[in-house]
Computed example of a mutant assay.
Amino acid sequence: MLAVNGIPTPENLAEVFPSQERLAKGPVAIAECFQNIPCDPCYHSCKQGAIQEFADINERPRIHFDQCNGCGTCMSRCPGLAIFVVDATFSDNEALVKIPYEFLPLPQVDERVIAVNRAGQEVGEVRVIRVQNSKIQDKTAIVWLAVPKEQMMEVRHFKIKEVR
């Protein structure tokens, strides 16, 4: 239960996940923000108009999935690191999961890392495809992971195998 252990329930997740049809169309942002807090940088960062305007700054973000192109600009603006991009069209057997990351050291392209789920449990080994870390991202890197398609909605973070 979210209020007790911080882990969203399947019902919580169903409220924020795009449909299978939308996932099949390409990259899309998913806002796994489950608290009503005064926060709206994601809305202001979205040039596509995919994040619904907030009537009250304490509302949770709502994404218009049909307007989202999965650019990920909102990810590095989210102070709660609660927005992810999933691309189910990456390959026949892998999806791309873009994860906001604020730790050092940053992983390297082609490095194998340990994917973890929302509870911090290891899901398996995955490959780093790209690491975006530009000045405009304000120290929130975006790490692109190639994950098995069946885990694309489960993988939400990772651990580097060895500290370099």
Score class of each variant (00 low, 15 high):
Thr9Met: 06
Thr140Arg: 08
Glu53Lys: 07
Glu94Gln: 11
Glu125Pro: 11
Ser45Ile: 08
Lys161Ser: 13
Gly124Thr: 07
Phe103Asp: 12
Ile37Asn: 15
Glu154Met: 09
Asn93Met: 03
Arg130Asp: 13
Gly6Arg: 11
Val155Pro: 04
Lys98Gly: 01
Gly124Glu: 03
Gln48Phe: 11
Pro41Leu: 11
Pro105Phe: 01
Asn58Arg: 14
Val85Trp: 01
Val16Trp: 03
Val28Leu: 03
Asp138Glu: 10
His44Pro: 02
Asp40Ser: 14
Pro107Trp: 04
Ala31Leu: 09
Gln132Met: 07
Arg156Glu: 12
Val143Cys: 03
Val116Lys: 12
Asp66Val: 02
Ser134Thr: 11
Ala146Met: 02
Ala119Pro: 01
Ser91Tyr: 07
Asn36Gln: 15
Arg60Asp: 03
Phe54Trp: 07
Glu59Ile: 01
His44Val: 12
Asp87Phe: 01
Ile57Arg: 12
Val86Trp: 00
Arg127Pro: 07
Ala3Ile: 10
Cys42Asp: 02
Leu96His: 02
Ala24Phe: 00
Asp92His: 03
Ala95Pro: 00
Cys74Gln: 02
Glu150Lys: 11
Leu81Ala: 12
Arg164Tyr: 09
Cys78Gly: 08
Gln20Tyr: 07
Val28Ile: 11
Gln132Lys: 11
Val155His: 04
Val86Ile: 09
Ala3Phe: 13
His64Pro: 00
Pro41Lys: 13
Met1Cys: 09
Ile129Glu: 15
Ile129Ser: 05
Pro27Lys: 08
Asn36Trp: 13
Cys74Lys: 03
His157Tyr: 15
Val123Leu: 12
Gly124Leu: 02
Thr89His: 06
